[in-house]
Amino acid sequence: MQIRVGDGRTIKEIRFTGKGCAISQASASMLTELAKGKNLDWVKALSKEDIVGMLGNPELGPSRIKCALLGMKVLKTGVYGYLGTKMTDTED
């Protein structure tokens, strides 16, 4: 996942490359579309529910939910890294 940040806080451009199952790739792809133009606080506030909602609330078991959340996790890790702050999210 690669982003270009404008004025220190807005996602100007975003793209990803990935290899994985349909759920992980679809989720990451949709997330890049949603995230474009948003600011970094929006990324920090993203939740599991947001992602599941974005995907149209599919029925995902405890194993496949990880596939759906992978893109968000990568994006958040990157944003926190960029901001130089520690990620405080806990996994559930």
């Binding site: 996942m1 451009e13 975003i14 793209r15 990803f16 490359t17 990935g18 290899k19 994985g20 199952c21 349909a22 790739q25 990451a28 792809s29 890049t32 579309e33 474009k36």
Partner: peptide, 9 residues
């Protein structure tokens, strides 16, 4: 392939 790219550059 399943290699996918997001929003084009």
């Amino acid at each position: 392939s399943w290699t996918t790219t997001g929003t084009p550059a």
